[in-house]
């Protein structure tokens, strides 16, 4: 069996744009699940609203495509009511960090046994490119036409501070690392958070000098800084450029968790 067996063939073609990074993240997730040997009937995908949240609709399991920002709250109900189910949440930066920010930090605090995968394209893609809480300073969007003036969230630091057991960040360039990170997330009891930076040629790239998909993926690669390397640089008193994304395993710990299968 291959992870492709997890797709709903009767739902194709999908709605993602040519060059979208979301498919990469879904593939990595399903490949990790395949390695876990989970059964389809024991696995539930939950999502909110946005491009990322369409993912569960393409996967052949029970799935709950909910309201904007609330996926984690719905998933909490599914998991607490039936801890035997494996519950995975697909979300995005707008869905999870803006309208759903409160549910996110409280799920981290409860350390509930969910795996949350955030496809962070740094913009509202589905609705045509409005600024999100992770839009980098200076970047253009339809609601930041003079450049984003606000400081973006560091979602991984947020998850760590709020209490998640496992936190990692990769990009759509790092497919092998991402697949491994998702697998560790699936294995870890408690709240696992994996942030995947993804290119969005249609809504983000077009406005921010990444018209070519490859250019954006290359940017993500070249602006990724391994956490271990960052830590060494800090030890040596070296300057960390502000536009770097810290990638790798950010947090791994064994705090008491809720909703873990008995």
């Amino acid at each position: 069996m291959s992870y492709e067996d997890w797709y709903r063939q009767d739902r194709l073609p999908h709605i993602f744009c040519a060059g979208c990074g979301n498919g990469t993240i879904i593939n990595c997730t399903l490949a990790a699940i395949e390695q876990m040997d989970w059964k389809k009937e024991d696995t539930v995908f939950v999502s909110g609203i946005g491009c990322s949240s369409r993912a569960p609709g393409y996967i052949l399991t029970d799935s709950l495509h909910t309201t904007h920002g609330r996926a984690i709250a719905f998933a909490t109900g599914v998991k607490m009511a039936n801890p035997d189910l494996h519950v995975v949440v697909f979300t995005g930066d707008g869905d999870m960090a803006a309208i759903g920010g409160n549910h996110f930090i409280h799920a981290c605090r409860r350390n509930i046994d969910l795996t949350v995968i955030c496809m962070n394209n740094q913009i509202y893609g589905m609705t045509g490119g409005q600024g999100s809480p992770t839009t980098p300073k200076g970047c253009l969007s339809s609601t930041t036409p003079f450049g984003c003036a606000e400081t973006p969230f560091d979602l991984c630091e947020l998850a760590t501070a709020a209490g998640a057991n496992y936190v990692s960040r990769w990009t759509s360039y790092h497919v092998k690392e991402l697949e491994k990170a998702v697998k560790v997330g699936l294995e870890t009891p408690g709240f696992s958070f994996i942030e995947a930076l993804v290119q969005c040629p249609t809504a983000f790239g077009r406005r921010n000098k990444f018209r070519q998909v490859a250019d954006h993926v290359e940017y993500l690669r070249s602006h990724s800084l391994l956490k271990a390397k960052r830590d060494r640089m800090l030890e040596n008193g070296e300057h960390i450029p502000e536009d770097m994304y810290i990638v790798g395993e950010i947090t791994r710990r064994k705090r008491p968790a809720m909703g873990v299968k008995p």
Partner: peptide
């Protein structure tokens, strides 16, 4: 059974809808 105090009422009803789909009387 399960009692969970959620972070707000939005999450409260979200959680019972999620629970209901697993068969719970929520």
């Amino acid at each position: 059974g399960v009692f969970i105090q959620m972070e707000d009422e939005i999450a409260g009803i979200a959680s019972i809808i999620g629970a209901a789909w697993t068969g719970a009387r929520a």
